[in-house]
Design a protein around this nucleic acid. Structure first.
Length: 237
DNA sequence: AAAGCTATCAACCGCCAACTT
DNA sequence: GAAGTTGGCGGTTGATAGCTT
């Protein structure tokens, strides 16, 4: 009945659960020699009793060189919070702005730390702003920003409504963030604008492709914002 | 010291889109 | 163009470490 859970796991009996150091070693050595890709051949060629998906996941989330685990910096935290507000739960897209972090790590960190943190801050901020846009305070600020930036229809009247992508580049994300920064520095305006109730859910389905140059610009923009926030300090998130 | 509870995170599952035949 | 295959993504789960009572 139904679809097999994983085609590659059908034919052979695969091992599940935590990876052993021996398995890690075999996978790591194989990928170093052959490079990532063609995951289907990995269990076949290495003799690992793991499904190809499991091998890929282990590599991308744990073995891949340059990955940092735990101890998210305030800067990383800020980036995650703001990108989550902009993009929603598009962890892979968010992870593209944090090369040392995996989407899984970011997702876990969001679910275990940041969600609570934001919720806590939201309750302590005594419901200053109310909106139907979203459940998070961050989204409230971003929604205010969206009112301040050129409307998506102005930017791309044909593509936006079909969700094919207003925020399809770092440039557009920068526009959003830039507008948000402007409104962020002006609480009065923020409260006024918020009534228009722009809904972030409009951005569902948007795919983010990152141009390296724009990516850098976006990074510096984030740095600027984080610096502002550090200096401004008093502004609640 | 032990039992119960909570938080964390690695790994799995199911779906989907892109690619191949 | 259809069917099959593969890789990627986001949601969820389960094991376990750490904390509280």
């Amino acid at each position: 009945m139904g679809r097999p859970q994983c085609p590659c796991c059908e034919k052979i009996r695969v091992k599940k659960g935590p990876w052993t150091p021996e398995e890690d070693g075999i996978l790591f050595t194989y990928i170093q020699q052959n490079g990532p890709g063609n995951w289907r051949s990995v269990p076949i060629n290495t003799g690992l009793m793991r499904c190809s998906k499991s091998c890929r996941l282990r590599w991308t989330n744990y073995l891949r060189p340059g990955i940092k685990h735990g101890n998210f910096t305030p800067r990383e935290e800020g980036i995650i919070i703001h990108l989550q507000a902009l993009l929603g739960n598009r962890w892979a897209a968010i992870a593209s702005y944090l090369p040392q972090r995996t989407d899984n790590d970011i997702k876990n960190y969001w679910n275990t730390h940041l969600k609570k943190k934001i919720k806590k801050q939201q309750t302590t901020s005594s419901g200053k702003i109310t909106t139907s846009c979203s459940s998070t305070t961050q989204n409230e600020f971003i929604s205010a920003d969206l009112c301040a930036t050129p409307s998506p229809m102005e930017v791309s009247s044909s593509s936006y409504s079909s969700a094919s992508n207003y925020a399809s580049s770092a440039e557009n994300i920068s526009k959003l963030l830039d507008g948000w920064m402007r409104s962020y520095s002006n609480d009065k305006q923020l409260e006024d604008r918020n009534d228009s109730g722009v809904n972030l859910e409009q951005f569902e389905g948007i795919e983010v492709k990152v141009d390296p140059v724009l990516h850098d610009e976006f990074e510096s923009l984030l740095d600027k914002w984080l610096l502002d926030e550090a200096l401004g300090g008093q502004n609640e998130i």
